[in-house]
Simulated scan of single mutants.
Amino acid sequence: MPLHVPPAPAPALRSVLTALSSPTAVRDARTPSLLRAQGPASAELPLPVHVLDRVTADGETSTTLAGWRFLIRTGDRAAAAADTVLTADGWVFSRFFEGPYIASTELALRQAEAMTQPYQPRLLSVPGLYMLALWLHGDTEADGAAGGPAPTDLLVPLAPAPPGIAAHRPHRVTELLPVLTHRVTPTRLLGSPA
């Protein structure tokens, strides 16, 4: 198995499992796929979610860990996802959600499994482009919550991808970052209004 999924912090997983076992949390999430789910739901494939804060002209990046995302599996598919965030009191459940990024993440992970080189999967959010990518980090022993994209890492934009960026096509970081640098101004990268 070429994917080495980093372990999520135990409190993050516990908070998601607690929310999954709470009928109130599931009902209040208004996530139709979870409400219709037949049988038990499980939290799988914890992925650290990093936000791209800065890309310099020479390709240097700065990222911040935003949380951990778990795919919520019911039966043979991921029906939703659960996010956790770090607070002053530790890791806590944030929200359940569904949408196109769930199926797109599953597809990108299956594609990555078929690769011959081992990778550590992460998610990279680019708020200025409303873009989410599966980040395949080449150092499988690295702390999933730390570091930035290495030049040899792969980024797989998830669907829906921004115009002009092909979804589900692996790009070397050195290939995709210049495109992002050109399309996003520093203020937009931080999520500030343009």
Rank of each mutant, 00 (worst) to 15 (best):
A146F: 05
R122I: 08
F97G: 07
E98F: 00
L109T: 06
E98M: 04
E106D: 15
L129E: 09
V85I: 12
R110A: 13
V55S: 06
L129Y: 06
H50W: 05
H50T: 04
D58I: 10
Y101N: 02
E106A: 13
A78S: 15
L86M: 12
S62N: 08
E60W: 03
A81V: 11
M131W: 05
A114D: 14
L134M: 08
G138H: 14
T84S: 07
Q111E: 14
Q117H: 12
A108L: 08
W135I: 04
R73T: 07
A142I: 10
A145T: 10
F93K: 05
A103F: 03
A133W: 03
E113W: 12
G147T: 01
A57L: 12
L47T: 03
H137G: 05
P121I: 08
Q117E: 12
Q117P: 00
S94F: 09
F70P: 04
V92E: 13
R77A: 13
T64W: 07
D139I: 03
L86I: 01
M115F: 12
M131H: 08
M115V: 09
I72T: 02
L47E: 08
T140M: 07
Q120L: 09
L71A: 14
L134H: 07
T56E: 09
G75V: 01
A88Q: 11
R110P: 02
L52R: 10
T140D: 04
L109W: 01
G138R: 13
E98I: 01
A142T: 08
G59A: 11
L47A: 13
L71N: 13
V51Q: 14
G59T: 06
G99W: 06
V49L: 15
T61L: 04
F97W: 15
V55P: 00
G128V: 01
T56Y: 00
I102K: 06
D143C: 06
S94I: 00
G147Y: 00
